[in-house]
Amino acid sequence: MNLPLLIGYGNTLRRDDGAGVWLVNEFSRCYPGRAHCLSVHQLGPELAEAVVRAPCVVFADASVAVSDLAVSRIEPSDSSSSHRSTHHTTPQDLLHSCLDLYGRIPSDCYVVRIPVRSLSWGETITDEVKAACRDAVEAIAELLDNLAFRGTKAKQDGREGGMDNVRRETERRDIVP
């Protein structure tokens, strides 16, 4: 079975904006071999291939829109091509590109948003955000365990689901309004 994919992204020169990258490194250290981990400056269509190969994808990013750690399930964006930009790609946009390019996406897609304290110049993240990242690492590990359990259970019950499954283009009507 392919490993789940964890993508942390952000600008590591702007302190807490690099929280997603820090989180991924921490996850690799705490749970080696548990997920395929990628850290990138920003999301781009080059990542689509890695995403569609994974049974599950988790994006980790710093966010000014949340005050507490937030884990949420996401769907592909419903935006038309005119609203997507080559300079700013959201996880939802990337999933949309996966459908366009490969006709499928992982069955489970999540984004972890980490609240930030400082976005000034600097290569270190704040202690508060480090603590939030450590919480996020545990939350992601638990999430992946649950998905793996659900997949095993579904298999035993003779159903599809969990981390062995992908959503295909034929299901796109359900995904994209």
Binding site: S81, S82, R84
Partner: peptide, 11 residues
């Protein structure tokens, strides 16, 4: 122009 970009091309 709404489709004249790489994302429009993907389709």
């Amino acid at each position: 122009p709404a489709k004249r970009n790489v994302f429009g091309l993907m389709e």
